[in-house]
């Protein structure tokens, strides 16, 4: 297949696309978006400042956006862009999977840099959970790229019309209900200080110790994966790591967290990392700036008290 020098993005019901648009503009001046989902989504993509919006039409009642994946793939294949970018979260993966399958092209995740050299696209990715980096040249067709979505930004660029494309969504799945979460998802990426706790915590009630410290230090609460899943003591969107959020705060305090690879890639870019752990051989002590070897149940209250005292 002969790929053009155009860059496309695919959007499925997640209007947080400005990250995709910014990345797409690295690769080409013009950006086309393929949108599955409600018209409102298509409108917000227009507002994010793209040059062309192809919308697959209003979904019938109960049709999940994932049912449009084959349509999205066909639309992208017809356009034969040099690169197509989508969200690495949720429905984005489903869209990219359908595109990668139709084009028989590898799906590229963990992308840290994109470059264009003439008609070729170079992609730098972190691989195997972040232990290594690899720079590849994509040849033979479209580069299929998964990226974290980013924020909804203020309207930019000129308004373009929403072009409707006929679609033939799968009819094998039907939505029957939604139990909304009580709290809106948090964005830890914006926090300057983050206090995270892991499996060193013995009981849910003891969380107060950690939130007290977070309050004293003026930080957001976060956790390692086992506290968000399995025990559900802390909301999943506060999980830090390869399958949670990747953050770069000025100060990251890890309490009762062993420091395994899958967690630590989430805070690799933090300025200062502090660890509290009772095991002096814990991996995290090799990856922190300051560490206290001790029981969190005595160290954390002492820290909270020390922060309250004036310097």
């Amino acid at each position: 297949m002969n790929a053009s020098s155009q860059t496309w993005i695919v959007v499925a019901d997640d209007p947080a696309v400005s990250g995709l648009v910014v990345a797409a503009r690295i690769l080409s001046a013009e950006v086309t978006a393929v949108v599955a989902g409600r018209r409102a989504t298509a409108e917000s993509v227009v507002a994010a400042g793209v040059d062309r919006v192809l919308w697959l039409g209003e979904p019938a009642e109960g049709t999940p956006v994932e049912a449009y994946a084959p349509d999205v793939a066909r639309t992208v294949a017809a356009g034969a862009p040099g690169a197509v970018l989508g969200s690495s979260e949720g429905a984005g993966r489903v869209m990219l999977g359908a595109i990668a399958a139709l084009l028989q092209a590898p799906g590229l995740s963990g992308v840290t840099a994109l470059e264009r050299d003439g008609n070729q696209i170079g992609v730098t990715r972190s691989v195997f959970g972040g232990i290594a980096e690899r720079r590849d040249l994509v040849t033979g067709g479209t580069a299929v790229i998964a990226l974290a979505g980013g924020e909804i930004s203020d309207p930019t660029g000129l308004a373009v019309p929403v072009e409707e494309v006929t679609a033939n969504a799968l009819t094998t799945g039907r939505l029957t209900g939604l139990r909304p979460k009580e709290k809106a998802p948090v964005n830890l990426r914006a926090a300057r200080t983050v206090v995270a706790v892991g499996r060193g915590l013995k009981a849910k009630d003891d969380l107060a110790l950690i939130t007290d410290l977070a309050d004293a230090i003026g930080g957001e609460l976060a956790c390692s994966r086992p506290l968000a899943e399995g025990v559900h003591w802390i909301a999943k969107d506060r999980n830090i790591g390869i399958s949670g959020q990747q953050i770069a705060p000025e100060l990251y305090v890890a309490i009762g967290i062993s420091g395994q690879l899958q967690h630590m890639v989430g805070v690799r870019d933090a300025d200062v990392i502090v660890a509290v752990n009772s095991d002096k051989d814990a991996l995290i002590f090799k990856q922190c700036d300051y560490g206290i070897v001790g029981d969190l149940y005595t160290v954390v209250p002492a820290l909270t008290a020390a922060l309250a005292a004036k310097p």
Binding site: A105, E133, D136, G140, V144
Partner: peptide, 16 residues
């Protein structure tokens, strides 16, 4: 496969 990758380089992220 229609699209293939040619690895230009590999590196080990700085341990920070």
């Amino acid at each position: 496969a229609q699209v293939t990758l040619t690895t230009l380089s590999t590196s080990r992220p700085a341990a920070g």
